[in-house]
Design a protein around this nucleic acid. Sequence first.
DNA 1: CGTCGGCATGTTAACGCTCACACTGTGCCG
DNA 2: CGGCACAGTGTGAGCGTTAACATGCCGACG
Lengths: 316, 316
Amino acid sequence: MSRVLNDSPRVNADTRSHVLEVIARLGYRPNRAARALGSGRSNSVTVVTANTTLYGYAATLQGIEEAARSEGFAVGVRVVESDGPADVRHAVEHVSDPDAGGVVVIAFDTAGAEVLRALPAKVPAVAATEAGGLTGVSRSMIFLDERQAAADATRHLLNLGHHTVHHVAIPSESGTSARRAGWRTALEDAGALVPEVLTAGWDVRSAYEAGVRLAAERAVTAVLCGNDDTALAVRRALYEAGRDVPGDVSIIGFDDVPGAAYWTPALTTVRMDFVALGRACLTAIAAELAGEPQPPVALSPPSLVVRESTAPRRNN
Amino acid sequence: MSRVLNDSPRVNADTRSHVLEVIARLGYRPNRAARALGSGRSNSVTVVTANTTLYGYAATLQGIEEAARSEGFAVGVRVVESDGPADVRHAVEHVSDPDAGGVVVIAFDTAGAEVLRALPAKVPAVAATEAGGLTGVSRSMIFLDERQAAADATRHLLNLGHHTVHHVAIPSESGTSARRAGWRTALEDAGALVPEVLTAGWDVRSAYEAGVRLAAERAVTAVLCGNDDTALAVRRALYEAGRDVPGDVSIIGFDDVPGAAYWTPALTTVRMDFVALGRACLTAIAAELAGEPQPPVALSPPSLVVRESTAPRRNN
DNA sequence: CGTCGGCATGTTAACGCTCACACTGTGCCG
DNA sequence: CGGCACAGTGTGAGCGTTAACATGCCGACG
């Protein structure tokens, strides 16, 4: 019976259908735990992430779950609250259990990255990372390369007549995220001054505070925000300072959250297909678990979508 | 050794510490699958949800995971894409496996509700539902009762001089959600006219369309939206119609998503503590799995937080 | 001083599967 | 017509735990 469940090639069609019939009649359901124990495989993946609520993480998780479901995998979730040694160790121990199956770690931040580094080589894993991947880790790493889009966004602002564009960064694994890199490159190529970057946390408040600082400087007329939530907060700070968006200041976000098109003004942002990223991760870990070679994945690159939050520089 | 791992009372302190020492030295880690097989228990819960990306769902999941982690449970996720029979059946089969452990279904919508109804009585489960719970299901149901807050919100608008309050509803399990009920009650109590409710889906676009219809009617000056995303879209529609918020029209949302306070104007909304809801669900399912009686949970009720999107009715 | 009741600890049958191997029968080749 | 290869099927030894039971030990009680 084990043979028909795992559809081995060596079963007579008659026998198979008979077994299937009996299975149906008895309402038999295989027990996953027993199957895992017996085979050593578990047909499940667990995703470790720093958060389940933030859009990028949640959407990636959704992509993973979607693909997992269609491939018959069970999916587990484990959050690492911080990159502190205790949290990281616990997460690593959790997923080191064979029952956790394959692991996909969402390493957009240092917490995920630390887990990835601490993960024993024997546990199968892939990672969703920032563009470029992580250094010093030999794992399959899949990412959305927004470097180009970040440069496009910056150039878009420059072409609008802005003398330079400011950047408020979100937490990232490397000090130099792809967003920041693309931004800097575009600025340098254009011979524009590269302002100091402000950093915000995941919480909207810290982004707001960065916005307040930016709003105080009359010289800033264009800002590239690390993500849409950051853009929201920066916009708020600008508003409170009496500076109109996009009249006085143009802003661009990253992610293109579902509501971005419905903002007032609608947000110019970079569309990131996190769901596709998640799906690709699942496909990759499934291949690794099956011992198949992993074809390099090519995700369509993020692209700038221009809406209403950017406008020509107002001469005054 | 099984005895020390499960800290049974009948072990000598010396023996225990010795075993512990050896365990540490060998780097031994118990195997979850084997443990589940042997004991019949799995120390894990799987949450079935219709979505992982929408704020209410994601935050509830976060609460569950948080509590699960601190109690040593592993958490699985299974999404039911729709309330169609096939999706529901697959989800039910998935969680019927003993390895799935306890189940917490997020039944804010019909998909979740259907799963709950179809779940065999033998599988331990609790549900996070709309206020009031589901009829015809005998399971522990935990919810945030926003009826009062909805009424408060409606009254707030009425007190501001609005003749009535329109409502755009989001999908719900019952035709009459608590939000809607509270709204209607407040309206009736005030002797105000009860307008027809508009319904939107989870997608922002449908909410936008509802907003467009509302914006076309000069009589609407106050609208209570089913959630913050809906409010966002309605606000956009109003803006496109040249109607100012809150000058011409006041709007209120539900959820109080992290960014709501940073909108422009900051959104008046009802704060829902989904994380606490999730935690409560985990506590409940853990108790059920342990065979302990379940104390009824009392979650602090959602409350209205007044910000900038509501203002006195403008007489014209 | 013989017994009996616990406490500690040793032992082993499940748990529900998978996988490797043994076995049977058939068609085909020489 | 014997032998062989192989498709199809039966069988049972694990897989890593748990829990029930068996055993050994000591002190207390009669």
